[in-house]
Structure formats: C-alpha cells, structure tokens
Amino acid sequence: MKSNEELIKDSLSLVESMVSDGLTDKEIAEKIGMSYSTFRRYKTQNSDLKTAIAQGKDRRNQKVVEALFKCCTGYKYYEEVPTKVKEEVLAEDGRTVLVKEDVLIKSVKKYKGPDLNAQKYWLNNRDKAQWKEDPYRVENDKKLTKLKEKEVEAKTSPI
C-alpha cells in the first residue's frame, strides 16, 4: 500500500485536471483514495500539491476569461432546431388527401451579438482608471460626507 506522500506525488496531474474540471476537495480526495481531512492537511503542507491546485484553478479561470471575451465580442454557434414537415399524399381512391407530418431536427448556425454588460464588466476590470463609471465618485462622496457632517454639527450645536 502506498503512503499518502506517494499517493499525492503519483496523482498531481490528476488533481490538477480535477480542479480544472471543478471538482471539490472532498471529491478529489475520494477519487485519489485518501480521506478528506488528510487531503486538506496535505493541501496546506505539500508545495507540489499547492502548485497543482493553483495550476488547475488558473486553467479553469482561463476558460471563464475566454467565455467572457466571447460574450464581449459576439460569436457564432450551432443550435439544433426541430422543424415540422408536412407532406400531402393522395389516397388510393384518388380523391382524398392525407397529410403526413414528420419532425426533423436541423442544425442551424446562429449568431450571438456582443453583450454590452459583458463589455462593461471587462473594461471596468481591465482598465479601471479609464473605464470606471464615475471617476470622481469617491471624491464627490467624501465632499458629500463632509457637508453632511457640518450640517449635523450645525443642528446639534447650541446657538
């Protein structure tokens, strides 16, 4: 039987992959055959395990950044759409028309346009100095607070 150190050393790439896929610590510990409490302890002590977890989180975060960027710029995608098809068929007597219905699934190419909220979020977080909503908000809030303090002071002081 392997020791916990050997178990972790042999599972580093697997741990990184599982973290990237979004598994919890409890699920990861179970999959590598270790108790949850032992995994948590090694997570704080073992630098190789810390690195593997950090790299897995970085990969997962990169996926989110790429998805956000796609929302900002717009993208094309395929969607399966059911389509009802009607076919008219003459009966054997030649007078009656029978309608045969069928449902076909077609793959349709669609376009999702850029999302203004995603763009705003991206720009606010990438270059706060240039893109924040109100660059003078903090300064104005401080001035407003001082005015309110003076107003309260004036109301409470005896004249």
Results as ranks from 00 to 15, higher is better:
Met1Glu: 13
Glu5Thr: 06
Glu5Lys: 02
Glu5Leu: 06
Glu6Asp: 07
Leu7Gln: 00
Ile8Ser: 08
Leu14Asp: 12
Glu16Lys: 05
Glu16Arg: 01
Ser17Ala: 12
Met18Trp: 10
Val19Glu: 05
Val19His: 01
Val19Ser: 00
Val19Ala: 01
Leu23Phe: 02
Asp25Tyr: 08
Lys26Thr: 00
Glu27Asn: 13
Ile28Leu: 07
Glu30Met: 10
Glu30Lys: 07
Lys31Asp: 10
Ile32Gly: 06
Ile32Pro: 10
Gly33Ser: 04
Ser35Asp: 10
Ser35Phe: 08
Thr38Val: 05
Arg40Met: 11
Arg40Asp: 09
Arg41Ile: 12
Lys43Gln: 15
Gln45Cys: 03
Asn46Thr: 05
Asp48Phe: 12
Lys50Val: 06
Lys50Asn: 15
Ala52Tyr: 05
Ala54Leu: 03
Ala54Trp: 13
Ala54Thr: 15
Ala54Phe: 11
Gly56Trp: 00
Arg60Ser: 08
Arg60Thr: 01
Arg60Leu: 10
Asn61Gln: 13
Asn61Ser: 13
Gln62Lys: 02
Gln62Tyr: 14
Val64Ala: 08
Glu66Pro: 10
Ala67Tyr: 09
Leu68Pro: 06
Lys70Tyr: 09
Lys70Glu: 13
Cys71Met: 12
Thr73Pro: 14
Gly74Glu: 06
Tyr75Leu: 09
Lys76Leu: 05
Tyr77Asp: 04
Tyr77Asn: 00
Glu79Ala: 01
Glu79Asn: 14
Glu80Lys: 05
Lys84Ala: 00
Lys84Gln: 02
Glu87Lys: 07
Glu87Pro: 00
Val89Lys: 04
Val89Pro: 02
Glu92Met: 02
Asp93Lys: 02
Asp93Glu: 05
Thr96Trp: 00
Thr96Ser: 09
Val97Met: 14
Val97Leu: 03
Val99Cys: 04
Lys100Trp: 04
Lys100Ala: 05
Glu101Gly: 11
Glu101Arg: 00
Leu104Trp: 12
Ile105Glu: 11
Ile105Met: 08
Ser107Lys: 15
Ser107Asn: 02
Val108Gln: 09
Lys109Phe: 09
Tyr111Asp: 12
Lys112Glu: 06
Pro114Asn: 06
Asp115Thr: 08
Asp115Trp: 10
Asp115Met: 11
Leu116Gln: 11
Leu116Val: 06
Asn117Ile: 03
Ala118Ser: 06
Lys120Pro: 15
Lys120Trp: 15
Lys120Arg: 09
Lys120Glu: 09
Tyr121Lys: 04
Tyr121Gly: 02
Trp122Ala: 07
Leu123Ile: 10
Asn125Arg: 09
Asp127Asn: 13
Glu133His: 15
Glu133Thr: 11
Asp134Gly: 01
Arg137Phe: 07
Glu139Leu: 06
Glu139Asp: 12
Asn140Met: 05
Asn140Cys: 04
Asn140Lys: 03
Asp141Glu: 15
Asp141Leu: 11
Lys142Ile: 07
Lys142Tyr: 10
Lys143Thr: 02
Lys143Val: 14
Lys143Leu: 13
Lys146Glu: 15
Leu147Glu: 12
Leu147Asn: 11
Leu147His: 14
Lys148His: 13
Lys150Phe: 11
Glu151Met: 03
Glu151Thr: 01
Val152Trp: 15
Val152Glu: 15
Val152Met: 14
Val152Ile: 14
Glu153Cys: 09
Ala154Gln: 11
Lys155Phe: 14
Thr156Phe: 06
Ser157Trp: 15
Pro158Ser: 00
Pro158Met: 01
